[in-house]
Design a protein around this nucleic acid. Structure first.
Lengths: 340, 340
DNA sequence: GATTGGATCGAAACCGATTTCGAATGTTCT
DNA sequence: AGAACATTCGAAATCGGTTTCGATCCAATC
């Protein structure tokens, strides 16, 4: 039995419409009544019902958050959660709250699109890094503004942000090259991951552009981006016989798994083999050796995603994409000195 | 211009009320018309507006998620985010979605309670681990069902889940004692954190019950639960002169920071000093030494929180609390063998 | 055949806001 | 004083659902 607009109107001795106008900054209400009403609103702590407001205006000030894909890219993923946190903050400043759709419901029917209209979300952010699924494509092609994080959306009301995966790979190769490494390997996620594939393609391109020879025996793939996959991949590489002098892993956790396998096999990192990760998650600083990696500007990705979505919602942009520049973070896992 | 209930009614040649009844499992509609309407709903992909539904029923099927406190306990915190993920999954099974309130809005007025009524949330989960703030107390005392995670709520419609901090401390002391350590130190968060205080109190109690002497010079506090605080705390301990043989840190990140400071000072872990963390975050497994710690059953905490909240919402419970049993995870940071 | 009762459906009020449009009042100008 | 205009306000329709209650129809009962 919460206070509603009617009660405020009664208390102030004005009509419901007048109260509504005051709440929405109309200018056809006198300063005197405005102050009186505002005072009562203040006292009662009145906050208009979002449902009623949404129903009347068809704007909910809600942004849907979708974790797409099947590689367990959940809210717990250290990279995405930091992007999301930055996104959430920025969206808050812009006046929006976030609603997380529980994936469980999809089992019992109801695709992403209909859930968006169900909640009248003004827009949504889709977090993935995998290949596009049909349900996501439907949403992308709808009239609902969407921003992909590490997912290339192409709809008229869509956009995306991601790091430049080609540049990432090229920075890694350059670093390894300058350290004297000529035999380079790669540990990726499953082939279903666009992100992993792009990093691999960029890596190959960079290797070739440096005039190095490519040994695809040293290119190996796990099932996802997590640590056990990296461990398993490196195990296979070791059992296979010949090892490269350096490997680039498509995620930090893959790199850490690989390092675990190497240590277990009595190999030293970086002395026997150098390892580079990707993402610069928090844990990189605490491992032994600390992990040389590529930092993606997660905060910037989140802020950019928020602003792009805001502009899309307010018809101030036609979508598009932002590619954020990555930075090489040199720690211990490749050795530090040049030609060291 | 989405399909609404009126359109469905027209297409099926029935009234709006009949459609509504079918959607809500009333039994005064014939099987024949029911099938006809359901078919049309299926074809059109109709999904009823949550706003309209909420407005009419005063139930939103939405759970508010609140990160309280000022210690940067954000969505990124590795412990809470895992509890939250489990909570989210379970809540999804129970038919609820999650809405995250953007803290930014609070700056410009509007407390937690009014935001909950604003969105008609059916209940909310409050994630903290700090002392209770007034705004949270208001919410706790309101008629809105609330569950605290690491926060002791006491309202009539409230409950909470947490790990048994006394038991945590006692398991740590027992472990250290059996390893032969008699000089025990502690690194906590700020005194504003109930969790840290409880762990400290339990630690002291356990030390006394083992008949060990207490040296409060070895008890030291940081500003929060994060790594730099642990580093700074250990630095102070080192500069202070005498060092304990083992320290218990109130979080894993504090422990990792402490280890960094020790290494930097040329001390070996665990040979010169043993370190125990708390939480068992993912990174514990990748550090050197790997971190002996206390595992809190995050998945169970989340599931319990979800069920308690559900029961509270549906008046099937009067609130209360669940305390989950912690488990000691022995890794390398204290040495592994007994008396080793 | 009249009555009862159950099954099936729809009209209408309602939830709490927004927004349009016209009415009433006050102000300025000729 | 009267006309023209600006200011201020409220009645009512609307958004998309839910829910109550009465109407209708048909079968069963007496």
């Amino acid at each position: 039995m919460q206070v509603n607009i009617k009660k405020i109107a009664e208390m102030a001795g004005v009509s419901v419409s007048t109260v509504s106008k005051i709440m929405n900054n109309y200018n056809d209400v006198s300063e005197k009544t405005k102050q009186r009403v505002l005072e009562i609103i203040e006292q009662t702590g009145y906050s208009p019902s979002n449902s009623a407001k949404t129903l009347a205006t068809k704007k909910s000030n809600l942004i849907g958050v979708i974790f797409a894909g099947e590689l367990n890219v959940e809210i717990t993923h250290p990279f995405f959660v930091e992007v999301l946190n930055s996104f959430k903050k920025q969206m808050g400043v812009l006046g929006y709250d976030l609603i997380f759709f529980s994936n469980e419901k999809f089992v019992s029917g109801g695709d992403y699109f209909s859930r968006c209209v169900h909640f009248h979300v003004d827009g949504c952010v889709i977090i993935s890094g995998e290949k596009m699924e049909p349900a996501i494509r439907d949403l992308d092609m709808s009239s609902i503004p969407c921003i992909g994080v590490d997912l290339e959306l192409k709809g008229k009301k869509s956009g995306y942000v991601m790091s430049d995966n080609y540049q990432i790979a090229s920075k890694v190769v350059e670093h390894l090259y300058l350290l004297g490494h000529r035999e380079l390997g790669f540990i990726g996620s499953t082939g279903d991951s666009d992100i992993s594939n792009q990093r691999e393609a960029g890596y190959i391109k960079a290797i070739e552009s440096f005039g190095l020879s490519l040994n695809t025996d040293w290119f190996i793939h796990g099932d996802d981006f997590f640590e056990p996959s990296g461990y398993a991949a490196m195990r296979r590489l070791i059992e296979q016989g010949s090892l490269p002098k350096a490997v680039f892993a498509a995620s930090d956790l893959l790199a850490l798994g690989a390092i675990r396998a190497l240590k277990e096999h009595g190999l030293r990192v970086p002395e026997d083999i150098a390892v580079v990760g990707c993402d610069d998650i928090e844990a990189c600083k605490y491992t032994t050796p600390t992990l040389t990696t590529i930092r993606q500007n997660k905060e910037r990705l989140g802020v950019l995603a928020a602003h792009m979505l805001f502009d899309l919602i307010n018809n101030q942009s036609e979508g598009g994409s932002f590619v954020v520049e990555p930075a090489l973070i040199v720690r211990e896992s490749c050795g530090s000195g040049l030609r060291g």
